[in-house]
Write a protein that binds this DNA or RNA. Structure first.
Lengths: 337, 337
DNA sequence: AAAAAAATCGGAAACGATTGCACAATATTG
DNA sequence: CAATATTGTGCAATCGTTTCCGATTTTTTT
């Protein structure tokens, strides 16, 4: 592509390419005079050292791979935003991949990352139980893996999560306090520590209230929005329908709203709703939706900070097990009042 | 990082590294027998050729740089999703950058891309008038630039836009037909062809209706959401406030909704609203919001297809001026009925 | 069966940057 | 002023692939 290289600059200035390289990297062993000569010419030619050559030599690419199950989701979006805000400052680039909630896709992506394309991987798993073999691949190649939200159970490493159990507990308690007698828990049916924790919080609140929860009201959903909505409409069409809902995923909260709208069921009079979500417009929905918002941006930024700290210093071991939990924010609005 | 290289494989198999390389790339000049020997060993070791070495040698990175003014925005998000859907199939990676609506940031990003990090750049400009010098840098380095939505006026290239003038015209006509007498046009005040086209459509509808639009109702906004909302509340607090709004950006539509809610102004009885937006929950807002949704995903996917076609064949010139316009979708909901 | 063609593979030079080592020129010290 | 330390620069190897040229062997053709 670009004809202009360090060697080219060196010839122009009657210097060795090593000298030019050192000058560009502000090495102490180059005189200020030649440094300036080099910098001036480089600037005037918009010279940028070849990234691939540098990466090859340095054995690091200064880019980080990010894998999320659903890129369009607000939560993951904000995490990525948080990651990028820190990485940009530190000169790292992000390559974001979407696994589409599919472990096979995830495997393919990771396999493609085994050739030194990225210095580390930040991932929220598509499914936590199915397989972890592809995570071992990264291990073998000595590429650090950091987890967030949907973290790996049987692989050690840095893990960033939120206080899901507590949040779900608080929300459920809130619904029960408001007088709900039949609260449904809507979760995604993939095996995830997040879903499990939220369900545990849900159950804990029931126990504390001296209630037995109906196991039929712990409902698992797939990723087909249309299908999910049908299931929900069926659920709420019943005579003994739930009078409260804790949606453990944004898409489920939305689907519930749509279902209830279609059935002309009044919120919160007939059914109260609280949903996990990071959408920015929850206060503008009809009715304003009570939400549990995860600290997505902070999750991303703190994760990136530790990651880069680790990549820079040889003292920090990014493979060591370490769990960080950040608190979500529970906001009560009209949908559960 | 990874000790295992082509040379390593070659030694293990008593072959030359050139042979191994060819075998991995399925060259016709390698016998099926040795091909299989190589592939088998490579697979069993999870071998993936070093991406940086390959990129250096091939002089192409198989990654594409994407620059958007606002990554969290639904529209840009969906465009990225569309880009990725195609690029993934073709083995290309995406590095996404956020210019935060700031030309200076944009310049920095582009400068950092001058070293062969990406094979091409897909961009929606932060501001179309301010400067184009940094776009010329890419030219000099022979890196193709494709534009979408906010395209460059004075730089030739592939440009993907939507039918903004027509969409705005239709929406405005709809508002006027509904009886609105004072419709406000809310736009972002950066100089963009998009904003200009939407404003032109707005004006065109007025002219066709035999109305003169009030120039004071062509209102430009910045990027501070709080500030914008204040301006809007002031606007609608007036006695002779507008009775219709065409918001040319998602954030402005949202801010308008919030402002009207705060002022207890009824929608659509007192003020009708139509907003450009790609949010997925417009039907769940209170009231359901009339929207003009750009074909974001298609924009991204068609752009990526043409880009990759161009990168592959030497016949297609990606620097040639070529405009593609895709139609948006206007959906009337309660907010303007 | 000799000649030509094709099929397989190896050697070595790139791609562009970084860096350990060597060496010269200058500055500092005894 | 000689000996040593410091400073500034050049040489050459290296990172891991790909590919141009040959070289050798095998197959096909005349």
């Amino acid at each position: 592509m670009s004809e202009i290289t360090i060697k080219f600059l060196a010839e122009k200035l009657n210097l060795a390419s090593s000298t030019v390289s050192r000058a560009l990297n502000d090495s102490h062993e180059i005189s200020d005079k030649t440094k300036k000569r080099v910098l001036d010419l480089a600037k005037s030619l918009n010279f940028q050292p070849n990234a691939n050559a540098r990466s090859l030599r340095e054995q690091k690419s200064k880019t980080i791979g990010v894998i999320v199950p659903d890129r369009v989701n607000n939560f993951f979006n904000l995490v990525i935003e948080g990651l990028e805000s820190v990485c940009r400052e530190e000169g790292y680039s992000l390559i974001v991949y979407n696994s589409y909630e599919d472990v096979e896709q995830e495997k393919k992506i990771i396999y493609s990352l085994l050739g030194g394309k990225v210095d580390a991987v930040v991932i929220s798993l598509a499914d936590e139980e199915k397989e972890v073999q592809h995570l071992e691949w990264l291990r073998e190649k000595n590429i650090p893996i950091l987890f967030f939200d949907r973290v790996a159970r049987h692989v050690s490493g840095l893990k960033y999560t939120t206080n899901d159990l507590e949040s779900a507990y608080l929300a459920t308690k809130h619904l029960l306090d408001k007088g709900c007698k039949k609260v449904a828990f809507l979760g995604l049916s993939n095996t995830s520590s997040v879903g499990k924790a939220r369900q545990d919080g849900f159950i804990k609140a029931h126990i504390e209230h001296g209630l037995v929860y109906d196991k039929n009201l712990l409902i698992g959903f797939g990723h087909d929005d249309i299908e999910n909505q049908k299931v929900l409409e069926k659920l709420f069409y019943k005579i003994n329908r739930p009078d409260g809902v804790l949606a453990a995923a944004e898409k489920l909260g939305i689907a519930t709203l749509r279902a209830l709208h279609n059935l002309r069921i009044k919120i919160p009079e007939q059914v109260r709703i609280v949903s996990f979500t990071n959408m920015q417009f929850a206060d503008l929905l009809s009715p304003a939706l009570s939400t549990i918002a995860q600290p997505a941006f902070e999750l991303g930024s703190t994760c990136a900070k530790e990651l880069i700290r680790g990549l820079k210093s040889k003292n920090i071991n990014l493979f060591e097990e370490k769990k960080i939990e950040l608190p979500s924010k529970f906001t009560i609005r009209d949908s559960s009042k």
